[in-house]
Nucleic acid binder design. Structure first.
Lengths: 203, 203
DNA sequence: GTCTATATTCTGATAGAC
DNA sequence: GTCTATCAGAATATAGAC
């Protein structure tokens, strides 16, 4: 009986092509900007004609949707693979640096994940799901060091997101904000009254 | 001699039309997204045909450029019109709230000013100038309360920008981050060792 | 599943009459 | 300075052969 194995291989091949399409889309998004993506360019990059893409994605926005889901899946995977120190402040720093480095590594990805930059695109529930997981995971990580209120979590996400923003906008590829992350975390930890030791000397 | 008066009125009319075009562009950007702007839509909104726009702007990107300059001019005007308290913390709060409210009032404007969302557009030197003025003005305002290092200024801009970002992305039209601004400023002021009094009680 | 051919619509931009 | 007419091209998407 070869029916099932054949179906498996076919499904695998399909999945591989889907990934190939999304990989090509990412390359174009990174080099031309997330809004400059076109089906022709995606198809050309993998040696296809643009109508063939419709065998794998039902529309251009479905490709954006796939990219959106992938991006949040990547962040989720990073989160799950990152061991966190028990020391509250060191833990906060590891969390912040992880998110920061992931974000500044790819402007197009960051824009697709976090900004409404594509006029018509809205993520599907399925693609949106991993972003909810990321937030739940973060809440858990913070809860374990005693940060439990929505206000405290909001404060944390905002200040780290602000660092990403400024780094991308005003010093792309540099370290101008990245190097101040320990200071940022100390500031935040003081505000929410986390126990020491401080990450940086008090000058 | 009517030559000069006539030239004045003509120049005025030209300037008025330019503004009319930019106003229409802003309306479309606000309702459809900054990236969804089209020359036809702009022209239609003011009862023109799209080729006529070329009498006033040499390209679509020139319209984006005009909008970019206008937006930063608006922020500069707001900055100049806002009297600042002498109390260091109250001063920081007024500055932050001013920028925050200005930013969240118009997502399209914020994206054009601060994010690289339009694939080909880069602001001209002329349009970029007011944004430099805004930054210089801010540096001066902060210097007057003893905040002089680049690192301290960077920290300030980043955390406030982060609040704007989160407010726009996760609670547009709401107050979820806006109401934490006093707390944010206290946190920052403590970190840069500004004298009291605190804006909020230490609970 | 990929192709060719094509529909349809829209885009920014130009030429030239008035 | 605004118009009509039009260009040249690009976009997403569909139909149907293979």
């Amino acid at each position: 009986m070869t029916a099932l194995p054949n179906r498996d291989r076919r499904a695998e091949r399909r999945e591989a092509t889907r990934r190939e399409i999304l990989d090509a889309a990412w390359e174009i998004a990174r080099s031309e900007g997330i809004a400059a993506l076109t089906l022709r360019a995606v198809a050309e990059r993998i040696g296809m004609r643009s109508p063939s893409l419709y065998s794998h994605f039902e529309s251009k926005n479905a490709i954006y949707d796939g990219m959106f889901g992938q991006a949040w899946q990547q962040l989720l995977a990073l989160q799950q693979a990152t061991p966190l120190p028990r020391s509250p402040r060191r833990r906060l720093l590891v969390i912040a640096q992880g998110f920061f480095d992931f974000s500044v590594a790819d402007l197009a990805r960051y824009q697709l994940m976090n900004q409404r930059t594509i006029p018509d695109f809205e993520p599907s529930e399925e693609a949106y799901a991993p972003s909810l997981e990321v937030m739940a995971h973060l809440r858990q990580d913070l809860a374990e060091i005693g940060i439990t209120t929505q206000a405290d979590v909001d404060l944390n996400t905002a200040i780290v997101a602000g660092f990403v923003d400024q780094q991308l906008a005003n010093d792309p590829g540099g370290e101008r904000w990245r190097r101040q992350l320990p200071r940022l975390i100390d500031m935040y930890a003081d505000a929410v009254r986390l126990p020491g030791p401080r990450l940086r000397r008090t000058t």
